[in-house]
Amino acid sequence: MTASQIHRPGTAEHLLDVRNLKVCFQVSDRAVRAVDGVDFHVKPAECVGVVGESGSGKSTLIRAISRLMPNLRVSELSGDLRFEGRDILGMSERDIRALRRSQGFSMIFQDPLGYLNPTHRVGRQIAEALSPHSKGESDSQRVHSLLEEVGFSDPKSVAHSFPHELSGGMRQRVMIAIALASDPKLLFADEPTTALDATVQLQVLQTLYRIHKERNMAVVIITHDLGVVAELCDRVYVMQTGKVVETAGTVDLFERPKHSYSARLIELSAHRINFRSAGL
């Protein structure tokens, strides 16, 4: 309780504010520190990128913030995490559910096929994520308008499909529709395009960006692809071995990387872009 009473100058406008987040996993008899004292914040309607190679702790960071920890044994989870000023770690299950249900945060994932239930139709999976509402619009109408919002021209047939009947890009857009169903103020996207074809990647990113702008919704994108960051994000956090090694505006980061690791990441992604344009 005392932590919540401490006044923090300059954080009032933050939608999400994370101080000194530490996460430790117990792997057999060893403690593995996945996130090591990270400070992190997101302003309303802002798009923030978190980059770093696999194992840098970026996914664990947002899993911890959204209280969706993987099934590993968590031996330590500490820090001051606030969403709209409310203490996330101290929140009851019921309150955190309420945040997920409506006007809080949502999440999309790397592998949309594994994250959709194979035995339920798409429409049903979106409908069960809808925020509670009182107005006259029916669930199926809301599902259809969500599907239209993420770029489907025939929402009816998509809603009636099973996940395996859709392409990878379509599935990821269905995931976005599910995430949007609760009218979130903040969307976490964990490697949203890594599992997709290059051409589809761009479409999904464009959809994500359009919705981010139209809804004034804050987005946190986790990625190892600096190209994604360059296209979408206002600010970037660079993570390495559980720590934030650099945080900067996107333009600043690309033009004047302060940390050698950031510079190396930029160099590598430039190489990759060259490969791509060379047709490899």
């Binding site: 249900r101 999440m107 994932f109 994250y115 959709l116 239930n117």
Partner: peptide
């Protein structure tokens, strides 16, 4: 994964 999705839906 879809269990995590279900959790993130607030079910």
């Amino acid at each position: 994964g879809y269990i995590i999705t279900a959790r993130s839906k607030g079910l």
